[in-house]
């Protein structure tokens, strides 16, 4: 399909607050992008399936009460579960950013080792060191080609993108930690890891790893590579002037690294459909 035919749906609910800038990025990239409150979507579920890609933007859905993303995840499974499953089965891409990542994990859509799980298989736990943390970090691309969003990003490429969250510590159940990690790598579901500016793994050292994530995990995809969740905000690293020290650089690229991820999704759609 052509770029301008691609229809991206950004879903929101009370507390979602990064929808506008994410929509702006997709519009700038030449796709169509609509933001809808779930109340509007529920009025016409069929219309939901007409979209080519789905975005769960950042924010604090339902105030992040209980656990970050948990309430919205349960809501979606209950009211839109069938539609979401169809969406994934058709290999249409879904991206969850920050709170969106939390929602996808709580929904069991990520990592979904054996298809969508009834209970979450991982968690984005409270940061260590604890507290909200807003900072630019480096993440290294670790995927070997499975993730449809990052196929055009070179393996081991270092991207600079900001994080801002208090619950972003990626965790597997302690007793199955290593088994899960092996599967993640084996299935090529590992997408981004926090690292130093030179690409060396953060190895759980703060602040390179800003939240204490297991194995410095910043983003993962599902087995099929069509669902991506990540804590860093690509939409905040989209334009050159959003970069933290652009005033110092002599030559500026037109875009930031976040564009690579969002555009990757559109390129996949262009080729696949």
């Amino acid at each position: 399909m052509k770029r301008e035919e691609i229809r991206v749906l950004l879903m929101r609910v009370g507390g979602t607050n990064c929808d506008k800038e994410t929509q702006r990025a997709f519009l700038e990239l030449g796709a169509q992008a609509d933001v809808f409150h779930i109340n509007q979507i529920m009025r016409d579920k069929e219309k939901f399936l007409e979209y080519d890609a789905l975005v769960f933007p950042g924010g604090f859905s339902y105030g992040d009460y209980v656990r970050a993303g948990a309430i919205w995840a349960k809501w979606i499974i209950a009211k839109l579960g069938r539609e979401i499953k169809r969406f994934i089965a058709e290999e249409k891409p879904i991206i969850g950013i920050c709170n969106g990542f939390q929602v996808l994990v709580e929904m069991g859509v990520l990592p979904a080792f054996n298809g969508i799980s009834e209970h979450p298989e991982a968690a984005l736990a409270t940061n260590f060191p604890p507290g909200y943390n807003c900072r630019w970090v480096y993440i290294r691309h670790e995927n070997h080609g499975n993730c449809v969003f990052t196929r055009r990003i070179a393996k081991n490429m270092v991207l600079r993108i900001p994080v801002a969250h208090s619950e972003g510590r990626f965790t597997f159940p302690k007793e199955r930690e290593n088994v899960c990690l092996e599967r993640l790598i084996e299935n090529d579901q590992l997408v981004f890891r926090y690292c130093h500016s030179d690409g060396k793994p953060a190895e759980n050292v703060y602040p390179a790893n800003p939240n204490g994530s297991f194995y410095d995990i910043a983003g993962i995809c599902n087995r099929e590579g069509t669902v991506l969740g990540l804590m860093p905000h690509p939409e905040r690293a989209f334009y050159w002037w959003q970069q933290p020290d652009w005033t110092k650089r002599k030559f500026l690229p037109q875009y930031g690294d976040g564009k690579l991820i969002l555009e990757g999704m559109l390129r996949y759609l262009e080729q696949k459909f």
Binding site: E21, R24, Y132, A164, H233, F238, W241, Q242, K248
Partner: peptide, 21 residues
């Protein structure tokens, strides 16, 4: 303190309270 405030949301911050690396 400043890092516990989100100063990037909305993606329109051109000059941030904490500058650069």
């Amino acid at each position: 303190v400043i890092r516990t405030y989100d100063h990037e949301v909305k993606g329109n911050t051109v000059l941030k309270p904490l500058h650069g690396e």
